[in-house]
Design a protein around this nucleic acid. Structure first.
Lengths: 350, 350
DNA sequence: CTTAGCAATCGACCGGGTCGAGTGCTACGT
DNA sequence: ACGTAGCACTCGACCCGGTCGATTGCTAAG
């Protein structure tokens, strides 16, 4: 029963039964039996027939069975089939539509801030945790690169085209006089307009040629650019509504919960997970439970969508929740927010 | 049994018994009985005598009783008495001493970064969550205040004496030409050396006198300074090792856990709690359970210590953990880290 | 004031019995 | 071949009662 194996197409009734199981289970949180489905799913067949279908679906690996006399629970593969069979255009409830419209109406201009708000918006709409990966600085052109003399220290400041500001404070060796700083400044002026990555490469060259005093200084500037594009703080993950996960947490095993929150604190790891998870498709990427080792270990699913300026993807936004998730509505929410975000980002980019 | 009521001094033996109960309970997590104490606390009296003392301590409100045939558990008041009777100079274990020394050996120069590391250090040492309130910008002198033309937007940048950088992106109305920006820049140059608060006040004056075009721009700058000193992002809380709280979380009630994590996400609220909790004394402040409404609701305790440059307090650092906490070692850790932090801050300040 | 002894208390644990939900099978009808 | 009704069976949830062990509180003696 490899959960990743390709499975044959299901007949329309099996699909309907599976959908009914998933939806009932997502609503109630309790294993669902044949009776419930026969009554509520409106398939016009008796519970006995449903039972046969359920047994078949279990045989196929879409459902599982806590114990003999309990109802069925979807497996990860079951959720997967359900999600794949979902109509592309899930509807938003009117309240949610308005929440999104309302949020994006108060236009903001700092993308980082917008993202913070967006993940909170998503977490409120879905009751899961909101996640976003902001654009990386790598290809952002530099508008400024400055050295600021602060007495015992020097502040290195890089400002990107889109309002990104990175800083680094370094100790100032005593023999650093104003002249050295001024000379270095001149060097740095020449880098304006280059991207973070280009400027970093250029700086390494310049440092190699420069005088010894300049050398260290320029290396420090290069280091700032490096950490801003690759390092710890380079790309972080914006999170919101993480407390929503605490709800489901109660029924998780102790260790599961622990590990989940530990990873949430380690942004870099979280970033990797999100990158793995969302590299798959074009529009909406859904990763369910054990389809990714991490989400498997946490018994969670992640839904992400890229957001773009024009045609180029610049970041990712989505939600994370229990595998027992209302995929339909969560997917609709993520899609809608990502769309608005893309519009906004495109506008800001001009 | 008002837990806040002043209580009479305890005799030396009652104190010893209380201490034994607290320490045994902190270690084991289970209600502790008279036998255990008689054997391990080395008081040289029998369990019957201990029982009498326990009954007396319960009568006084220091201990409680889950049910008749269970051992005793300290109340908040019990922990309070225990903490107050602790010797001031708790000893650190050698490993911890070295962890601190090791961390502060790799000197860093950006206080914000140091704080992030410090709370993580504390959380690793204590196995609780680390918390810190960084210095506020209010009294930091400005070294720079710049307007940066970024095409469709303008970036306002404020740089403080100690390496603090605040930014705000604003839309740029079309009639804003280079001249208006240049004029405003001149205005702003004049504010260098003033503190955030002073500069903000001065800007409001200037705006009132300025031309209409300048007016809005200057107000935006003032707004940046305002939000940097009072607003949402003004003073945040640095947190680390929050996942440690998830351990104890399992035995909390569902709602308790939820509320705790919700508040942890709302920095402003967390900030208020920390301010309430740490405003009390000079050195170490310990707030136990219901002594503060918030910590009461979460069944947690908070230990904080101020850190200073010279004699003036500039921030707070501490840990938060379950009321059933190893106060002795946590207090020693917080005290030690705060001390090192003060030394570092004082050095950086020169 | 301390101590030994002892009855009393109460949760934890175990086994058995009932109940109900839900399955899976079989036999029958279409 | 497929849907259905009926029914025995399974198994967890719940309740009950009994035992065990930990711990108390009391009492009476030192």
């Amino acid at each position: 029963m490899d959960p990743m194996a390709d499975r044959p197409e299901l007949g329309p009734r099996k699909s309907a039964v599976l959908r009914a199981v998933v939806e009932a289970y997502v609503r109630s949180g309790e294993p669902v039996g044949s009776e419930t489905i026969a009554e509520h799913a409106g398939l016009g067949v008796s519970s006995a027939t449903i039972r046969n279908e359920l047994a078949a679906l279990e045989e196929l690996g879409y459902l599982s069975h806590p114990h003999t006399s309990a109802g069925r629970i979807p497996t990860d593969a079951g959720y997967r089939h359900y999600v794949d069979s979902l109509p592309a255009g899930g509807r938003l409830r009117e309240a949610q539509r308005r929440a999104i419209a309302g949020y994006f109406a108060e236009v903001m201009v700092d993308l980082e801030e917008v993202l913070k708000g967006s993940v909170q918006l998503l977490s409120r709409m879905t009751q899961y945790a909101g996640l976003a990966v902001p654009p990386s600085a790598s290809d952002e052109p530099l508008v400024r690169l400055e050295l600021i003399d602060m007495g015992p220290t020097v502040l290195i400041l890089a400002i990107g085209q889109h309002g990104r500001v990175d800083k680094r404070v370094i100790d100032r060796p005593e023999h650093f006089d104003a002249k050295i700083l001024a000379d270095a400044e001149v060097c740095l002026q020449g880098l304006r307009g280059l991207t973070y990555v280009e400027a970093q490469a250029r700086l390494l060259q310049l440092a190699a040629e420069a005088s010894r005093d300049q050398h260290d200084l320029l290396l420090n500037v290069a280091e700032l650019l490096r950490t801003s594009t690759q390092g710890e703080r380079a790309s972080h993950v914006v999170m919101g509504g993480v407390s929503n996960l605490a709800d489901e947490a109660q029924q998780m095993r102790r260790e599961t919960l622990r590990r989940l929150f530990e990873t949430l604190e380690r942004e870099q790891e979280m970033l990797h997970v999100l990158q793995d998870v969302s590299s798959t498709q074009g529009d909406l990427a859904v990763t369910i439970g054990a389809e990714h080792p991490s989400t498997g270990a946490w018994e969670t699913s992640i839904i992400t969508a890229p957001f773009k300026t024009g045609e180029t993807t610049i970041g990712t936004i989505g939600v994370m929740g229990p595998t027992r998730m209302d995929y339909l509505s969560a997917m609709a929410s993520v899609r809608a927010v990502a769309k608005r975000l893309s519009e906004l980002a495109t506008e800001l980019d001009q």
